Computed example of a mutant assay.
Amino acid sequence: MTLPSPDAESEEGEEELDYRFTLANERTFLAWMRTSLGLLAGGVAVHTLVDPSRIAGFRRAIALSCLVLATMVAVGAYTHWRRVEAAMRRGDALPDTVLVPILSAGIAIVTLLAGVAVMLR
Rank of each mutant, 00 (worst) to 15 (best):
V46H: 00
A61E: 09
S53E: 12
P4E: 02
L67F: 04
D18T: 07
Y19T: 12
R89T: 07
L69V: 04
M33Q: 13
V68M: 06
T111F: 04
S104G: 14
V46D: 01
L17E: 00
R82A: 10
E15W: 11
S10C: 09
T48F: 10
F29N: 08
G42D: 05
E15L: 15
S10G: 11
D96H: 09
A108Y: 01
A86F: 09
G115S: 04
G42K: 04
A31I: 08
S53H: 09
V118A: 13
E16I: 15
A93S: 12
V46W: 00
S5R: 14
R27A: 13
S10P: 00
E11P: 11
P4Y: 02
T111V: 06
C66V: 04
A31W: 04
N25P: 03
S5C: 11
L94V: 05
E11N: 12
E11Y: 13
R121H: 10
S104R: 14
V100Y: 06
G13I: 08
Y19K: 13
S104W: 06
G76V: 00
V75F: 05
L94H: 03
V98S: 11
L103P: 00
L103F: 03
T22E: 12
F21P: 02
L120W: 02
T22V: 11
M72G: 08
H47L: 13
V46I: 10
D92L: 09
T48S: 15
M119I: 08
E12G: 12
V75D: 04
R60P: 03
V98W: 04
G43K: 04
R82T: 06
A86W: 06
L40V: 01
R82M: 08
A41F: 08
S65I: 02
E9A: 15
L99F: 02
Y19N: 12
S10M: 07
G76Q: 01
T97Q: 08
T48E: 14
W32H: 11
P52E: 10
H47M: 13
T35D: 07
R90P: 03
R121V: 09
A61D: 11
D18W: 00
A114H: 01
W32A: 10
D92G: 07
A45Y: 09
P4T: 06
E26D: 14
T22H: 10
A87L: 05
G91Q: 07
L69W: 04
R34L: 10
I109L: 12
W32D: 09
L120R: 07
A45S: 15
I62Y: 00
L112G: 12
R82Q: 08
L23G: 06
D7W: 06
R54S: 12
V75W: 03
A108W: 00
V84E: 02
V98A: 13
A41P: 03
G76T: 00
F21M: 05
R90S: 11
M1V: 14
T97D: 09
V84W: 02
A24P: 00
A86V: 11
L37W: 04
T48D: 14
A93H: 06
F29L: 14
G42E: 01
G91T: 05
